[in-house]
Design a binder for these strands. Structure first.
Lengths: 237, 237
DNA sequence: ACTCTGCTAGTGGCCTAGCCTCCTAGACTC
DNA sequence: GAGTCTAGGAGGCTAGGCCACTAGCAGAGT
């Protein structure tokens, strides 16, 4: 994984920064040394010297690895390996952020449609109230000139809740971080917030009537519209 | 989300590092200023002065936010907001890394059992060959004193492939990063690699015979055993 | 012998100061 | 008006230093 490999989309022409290269080197090091979870890495001073960089830069690389959950840096002790990383997987996951979007949307589609159907079958009165409240919030935001982002998230959260499926909720959690990116892009387009609001009302109606098919179809239509954003068309092309 | 909230499990008594606190402050700042994707943050020098920290520390915080996909730091230009983060969600996701493990295992269980059943129905001859090859790899690794980590991953990858379900494969991708953590812990325990190898053979047999129930049950038993590691018992308690 | 305590070497945390490279807006030239 | 040049400001990175914390060990006390 060298500098040349980075030019995925049209953007991101910036050169790889030192801390990024360092991460790769450190991952290689972990691999070569056969370090296992719980093992300690050499001291910052040693690593910095070994790789020929300053401690400040090395610290950046360690922060990055810590954020990724690879190591745990402990004051006075050192950096402890949390899990044995597969370097290729880890780095590709970082770099392909954008090109993964289409597949993420596909996964979102599947899960959220299923959630809508389940919600229609399992929703309690409280769930319905939460869904209505979310719609009200979004309507209020739009009325005040906003994009309705808060209400949008709230709505999808309420649907997830109403489905009463821990595992699927789980899935949505993992997807949600990336979904938020597309959702905001979409709501930013002229007229989109109003359209989404109407779609939400249709979905809610299906859930209220306890009709899984209607709810699922409404959700599918909604997602098809929302997913049609420039960001995606770029990534897919 | 202040320092006091951090004491989730029994571990992690270490004080929040400055860069972590800084991340929160920066996220708040983004929120207060109402910055949208594409907007630029103030310069490092300004931010460092404003928050009363050195540029080096600020740089660490920026690296962390970059790894999380919140910003894109460009040489000569500045830090550009990539997406509008929901601070609470983002930070909880970081801190709860460990406490999420039981639910992750639950999700893994559901998906992988389903994958095994699908594989039994849909596998091609090539899929079977890949599964057998993975088992051979793992056997070889164990014979040479290894823990069979490579073969283990390969096996589960082959199962996923044989299920011929893009979306579920997707799900496994998102879960796999965290799963690897538990898988390695498990294989590290004495005698575990051999047990896992036998379990793999049983699963493969079910898939070969085209029996979804047998394959699914074998996978379920396998996961139940593998999931029983100290890391999890700690987190659950 | 055992336990407890205090010390100390080594670790990460953070800062200051500085120089380099890179980007870009605006002045300048044609 | 279009292209070119340049200076200011942005991040990238280094060097060196001091402080806070951890853990292990030596010695005092039992």
């Amino acid at each position: 994984m060298t500098e040349q490999d980075r030019g995925h989309g049209p953007r991101r022409v910036t050169r790889a920064r030192l801390y990024e290269q360092l991460m790769e080197r450190i991952l290689e090091f972990i691999d070569e040394e056969g370090l296992a979870p719980g093992d300690r890495l050499p001291s910052e001073r040693d690593l910095a010297e070994q790789f020929g960089v300053s401690r400040a830069t090395l610290a950046q690389a360690l922060v990055a690895l810590e954020v990724l959950g690879v190591i745990d840096v402990r004051h006075g002790t050192g950096a402890v390996l949390v899990y044995r990383p597969n370097a290729t997987t880890l780095l590709r996951q970082l770099n392909d952020h954008r090109s993964l979007l289409p597949e993420i949307v596909e996964a979102r589609s599947t899960v959220e449609v299923k959630l809508a159907a389940l919600a229609a079958e399992r929703r309690t009165e409280q769930d319905l109230a939460a869904i209505d409240a979310a719609i009200e919030v979004m309507a209020g935001e739009i009325e005040q000139g906003g994009r309705g982002v808060g209400g949008d998230e709230r709505f999808h959260g309420a649907i997830t809740q109403a489905a009463h499926s821990g595992v699927l909720a789980q899935m949505m959690d993992f997807l949600s971080e990336r979904i938020r990116e597309t959702r905001i892009e979409s709501l930013g387009q002229p007229g989109r917030p109003e359209v989404s609001l109407e779609a939400h009302r249709a979905i809610a109606e299906g859930i209220r009537r306890g009709d899984p098919d209607e709810a699922a179809q409404a959700m599918q239509r909604h997602i098809d519209v929302v997913s049609d954003v420039p960001l995606l068309r770029d990534a897919a092309g």
